[in-house]
Nucleic acid binder design. Structure first.
Length: 868
RNA sequence: GCCUCUGUGGCGGAAUGGUAGACGCGGCAGACUCAAAAUCUGUUGCUCGCAAGGGCGUGGGGGUUCGAGUCCCUCCAGGGGCACCA
């Protein structure tokens, strides 16, 4: 037995180099082989990898290596989601140029990822901030414009008046700018939009076909798209004196059945009619300002009170000419949805009810449980909402009385359609995708504004529009706008003086097609169709749930948009999706409440102290690793101390991959101990087992046969587990096999059968663990006397003759309680099992003389004796 | 508020409606050692019992079934998503 300890610091770089020299992971288009494209969400180059990356990329790597061993032509690329605000923040705070900051970070992170031993095709690497990448993004955008997928429209942004800059929603904290602390205003700005809402229906229905996506993600997307079926119809309006005014008021509703319960109409504060009335109605301007200000404040914490402003207009009820509904501007009606106007039915909508109570409007119930006396049914402070299984009918509703809600909806829809008053309408919650960002570190939007010709796309021959490098961050606002010359250009159409668009793209655009670019990263066009046809779709995409909606929905839209413009030929980019859980860790803090890094904490009896100061440390909750709470463990330090294989093994062990995993010191040490144990085991096997290539001797029986069975069962189980991404279970199989090997090695005087079984088990053991601990596996493979590499080794196949046994253990129950077990030949007929079971002493005792009513036998599994 | 997922030993977690707790962590005991670490062996859901052998047990309650961690109803707790979408 070897007494040497396994030293990952020595072996890991060696094997990484061996793989690189062999170009083992470079993928080449080969139509004769089945392909497998495994992709993990590419990282933002923050400068250091974190444990979340380790977990994400290890999972992908296990799949890539496993599929490779199965004979697939595997594509497993890596790149950088390199545009974004942190680079600009670094520029502002530390005076580093975003470009050098980004590329330095990439270099650092690339090194860290390489030390993990990932089977990545680095020859396909790119960063989204490379002009050679984003030029294609610009080209496609120009094509999107031509295809009618792009729109320029006015939209509200969060404006920081001190920093003179536009803020993302997450930069607005309690209504104030995160940096300046100034009260954030809403401003209207002309911006670029991609018309994702054209695909609302399509993106929704196609979710049904994404069968290997997590149900949760599909649901989240479906909710986000938010399809609803309703009606659009118009009210005639009149003024205070009952005189009809020119405008009609169009509203959208999904509860047209409740029309007889209507008691008011409400318009969004941004509704065109409200804007029109503003000058004429004193106080309305202020009301509108108030509503606008509310949008950015902490209203999400406490629901804002329903407020309205009477517009001195009245809507004539379509079926009750004698009823006039007062019209309000209201703070709870959204301009961006439906018509920006509603009718309020307080009895059956909580918001409408709150509003009606505040302004003393009538509350007329029109839906009630079946059999309720309409004159007795009243609504208090809670709106009556019909539940799906409720037996409800319409009341107080003229020709609808007695109908169920669906019947009433249908009746109203018919009546309105025939009368030409309105029509059925499907609405979606999903809005168009605003892609303009008033930032420097992003892909320039390739359009030119000309005084004469309007907006003109940059001709493709002039692409890319590159970012100027001589920019300064010493004053607030967009450096592109401040740049002395960059924006000055000539109009491609008329040749006159013109101005470049100074907005850049939302970085979600960069990540909406990178997976396609990986198929042909050097191509002179965005995507080489032949390459994409072979490699796409991504067979297995892996990332965090936090991207369940935006990134994945945008990518699905982009695939369609690219297909429409001839850049791709598929609709769904990710055939299978897996969302892995986070890495969490206990939090530590001092008595003063300061967070302390786990690395600075030492155990002291039951509690913890600060490793340097000796100060008492208290533990807090187990939370997602975050810099702010300092509960982070640096992967580099872990790799330095234990090696990459230990880190990889740990993040795969124990916890199912979709759940959050708790990082613990004990766990890592356990993983490291196992690495050492494998090392000793393999050395022992090499010494005691048969030599490599030895044929199976005849007549293997007893313990040797059992070991062979265990081996082949492990192969079978591992194959199933990895195929289903059940890494934690796969690891348990490896432990089981290790335990079996260790037990077998205890014995002395090993016969040829056992020596063969040890060799077979040992080699299978190494190959099975290789996807998870690739370096250790290579090193062990050598110890086992091989000159080849494990990465070139095919995945083992289980011999069916060894995975089935001719005897089975059958559990014996009496009245559903387990009383005994019995070994019987496999496939024994039920009658014989019954007889054998009834003869058992334990069964007789449990029956205690009671007569047997029947015996339930499930072949090879269980027998249940039921007594009277 | 609506929509969702999850509740199993001290802990992470296994378990096609068929022997609950695989495997790991931790604990306990032993071997080796002058000793410790490392390693190896055994043991480890709770409980009654000297033992043989019982009883209880998958968040609570109910149901379906010969049999429920698993299916159905209901309640409770925790996590996630959306949050004035009419």
């Amino acid at each position: 037995m070897s007494t040497e300890r396994y030293n990952p610091r020595d072996t890991e770089p060696r094997w990484q180099q061996a793989w690189t020299e062999k170009r083992a992971f470079e993928a080449r288009h080969d139509p004769s082989r089945p392909k497998y494209y495994v992709l993990e969400m590419f990282p933002y180059p923050s400068g250091r990898i974190h444990m979340g990356h380790v977990r994400n990329y290890t999972m992908g790597d296990v799949l890539a290596r496993y599929r490779r061993a199965l004979g697939y032509n595997v594509l497993h690329p890596m790149g950088w989601d390199a545009f974004g605000m942190p680079a600009e923040n670094a520029a502002i705070e530390r005076g580093v140029h975003p470009k050098s900051w980004t590329y330095d970070n990439i270099a650092a992170m690339r090194g860290q990822l390489k030390s993990l031993g990932l089977s990545l095709d680095w020859s396909r690497e790119f960063a989204t901030c490379d002009p050679s990448y984003y030029r294609h993004e610009q080209e496609m955008f120009v094509d999107f414009i031509k295809a009618g997928l792009v729109e320029r429209k006015v939209s509200m942004v969060n404006w920081d008046p001190v920093d003179q800059t536009v803020l993302a929603n997450e930069q607005v904290i309690d209504g104030r700018g995160w940096r300046s602390g100034a009260l954030v205003e809403k401003r209207e700005l002309a911006q670029w939009f991609l018309k994702i809402s054209d695909y609302s229906e399509e993106l929704l229905t196609a979710l049904d076909d994404l069968k290997t996506w997590p149900e949760k993600v599909r649901l989240m997307q479906a909710n986000w798209i938010g399809r609803s079926e309703g009606m659009r119809f118009a009210f005639t309006l009149e003024d205070d004196n009952g005189k009809q005014v020119g405008d009609k008021l169009t509203v959208y509703t999904t509860r047209h059945d409740t029309i007889f319960g209507a008691s008011f109409c409400a318009l969004s504060a941004d509704h065109p009619l409200v804007r029109e009335l503003e000058p004429a109605l004193p106080g309305l301007a202020e009301f509108r300002r108030e509503v606008a200000a509310l949008g950015t404040s902490e209203e999400s914490i406490e629901r804002a009170e329903k407020k309205g402003f009477p517009l001195k207009l009245y809507a004539r009820h379509p079926f009750r000419p004698e009823v006039r509904l007062p019209v309000y501007a209201a703070n709870f009606v959204l301009m961006g949805y439906g018509e920006g106007a509603i009718f309020g039915c307080p009895a059956h909508d909580q918001r409408d009810l709150d509003f009606a109570r505040k302004y003393g409007l009538p509350v007329i119930p029109v839906v009630a449980p079946k059999g309720t006396d309409p004159s007795q049914f009243a609504v208090g402070d809670e709106a009556f909402l019909e539940k799906e299984d409720d037996q409800t009918v319409l009341i107080n509703s003229d020709f609808l009385d007695g109908m169920t809600v669906p019947e009433a909806k249908e009746a109203i829809a018919r009546r309105m359609e025939t009368a030409g008053m309105g029509e059925r309408k499907v609405n979606f919650r999903l809005r168009d995708w605003g892609v303009s960002r008033q930032r420097y570190w992003g892909c320039p939007i390739p359009v030119i504004h000309c005084g004469k010709c309007g907006v003109v796309p940059v001709p493709k021959k002039d692409l890319p529009v590159t970012l100027p490098e001589d920019v300064t961050f010493d004053r607030p606002g967009n450096p592109l706008l401040h740049h002395p010359t960059w924006k000055d250009t000539t109009c491609p159409s008329c040749g006159g003086k013109a101005r470049r668009e100074t907005d850049t793209f939302d970085t979600f655009i960069d990540s909406s097609w990178y997976f396609a670019r990986f198929c042909s990263p050097q191509a002179p066009i965005p995507v080489d169709r032949a390459e994409a046809k072979y490699w796409m779709p991504v067979d297995q995409y892996i990332g965090g749930v936090e991207h369940a909606i935006l990134h994945l929905l945008y990518s699905r839209f982009y695939a369609r948009a690219m297909t429409l413009t001839g850049h791709l030929d598929l609709k769904e980019p990710f055939a299978s999706l897996f969302t892995q859980g986070m890495v969490v860790h206990e939090t530590f803090r001092t008595a003063a409440g300061e967070w302390v890094l786990p690395a600075e904490v030492a155990r002291a009896g039951e509690g913890y102290v600060h490793a340097r100061t000796g100060e008492k440390i208290t533990t807090g909750g187990i939370e997602k690793m975050s810099k702010s709470k300092k509960n982070v463990v640096d992967p580099e330090a872990i790799i330095e101390r234990y090696g990459a294989d230990t880190a990889r093994w740990f993040v795969l062990s124990d916890t199912p991959p979709e759940r959050d995993i708790e990082w613990t010191e004990n766990g890592v040490e356990g993983a490291f101990r196992f690495v050492q144990r494998v090392w000793r085991l393999v050395a022992d096997i090499q010494q005691k087992g048969a030599s490599p290539g030895t044929k199976a001797p005849a007549g293997i029986a007893g313990d040797a046969l059992e070991l062979r069975r265990t081996t082949h069962l492990a192969v079978q189980a591992m194959t199933e587990d990895l195929g289903a991404l059940r890494f934690n279970r796969g690891i348990a199989r490896i432990y089981e096999l290790a335990n079996a090997l260790q037990a077998a090695l205890q014995k002395n005087d090993l016969d040829d059968g056992m020596r063969f079984a040890l060799r077979e088990a040992g080699e299978a053991f190494v190959v099975l663990m290789a996807p998870m601990m690739p370096h250790l596996a290579e090193e062990c493979w050598q110890v086992l006397g091989h000159k080849t590499l494990v990465v070139d080794r095919p995945w083992p196949k289980a011999d069916p003759a060894l995975t089935v046994s001719d005897e089975v253990t059958i559990a014996v129950q009496v009245n559903g309680k387990r009383r005994d077990e019995i070994r019987l030949p496999k496939g024994l007929p039920n009658a014989k099992v019954e007889a054998a079971v009834l003869a058992l002493d334990n069964v007789k005792r449990a029956l205690d003389g009671k007569p047997v009513r029947k015996v339930v036998v499930v072949m090879d599994r269980i027998a249940n004796v039921v007594s009277g």
